[in-house]
């Protein structure tokens, strides 16, 4: 545990100011580990291109999970790939978030019925924060998913969670 991360029993004005600062810093610079697997990767690239530009949200593509905050799982997750996704998720450093993009990553997509090799939803191996529906989702839908993730990050807290 970091010295300040989730060590406080109850919040005070310093803790909340620090939380606001930290959350703002984290949501404004979500470095992504792009995990484009199939057709949704094209839409992710379209979202990264000039018309829809996710870089203005502070999302910069990093090649390695060590430097990434968010992983966009974009495309069909096969069972062969699922173990790699689990390992890569493990190698990301906290705070880490997952955006599951497209029907195949949400629930198996068009392969739900007969796909013997498809993992029916990436949330069977890793915990997902935001599901972006679509086949493939338009870049604006991916941007909405990113904004929803930013709202989730904004609500995070340094205070220890009590049951």
């Amino acid at each position: 545990m970091g010295l300040l991360d989730q060590r406080f029993e109850n919040g005070n004005v310093f803790v909340t100011s620090l939380e606001n600062l930290l959350n703002w810093a984290r949501l404004s610079s979500l470095y992504q580990m792009q995990f484009g697997l199939a057709c949704c990767a094209i839409e992710m690239m379209a979202a990264s291109a000039s018309d829809f530009d996710i870089m203005r949200f502070g999302i910069i593509p990093r090649a390695t999970p060590r430097q990434a905050d968010v992983m966009f799982v974009a495309g069909t997750v096969t069972l062969k790939m699922a173990s790699r996704i689990k390992r890569l998720y493990d190698q990301m450093a906290e705070p880490r978030y997952i955006i599951s993009m497209g029907s195949c990553a949400n629930c198996g997509g068009p392969y739900w019925e007969h796909g013997y090799h498809v993992l029916k939803g990436v949330d069977r191996v890793i915990p997902v924060d935001v599901f972006v529906p679509g086949c493939p989702p338009r870049p604006e839908a991916l941007l909405e998913g990113i904004i929803k993730l930013q709202e989730k990050v904004r609500k995070e807290s340094l205070v220890k969670k009590s049951a």
Binding site: G2, L3, L4, S83, R87, D90, Q91, M92, P95
Partner: peptide
């Protein structure tokens, strides 16, 4: 001071593209 530190064997394993 600020970053979380929760190492476990899967996280500290060397990176080899999954």
């Amino acid at each position: 001071l600020l970053r979380p530190r929760r190492p476990y064997p899967g996280k500290v394993a060397p990176y080899e593209c999954g």
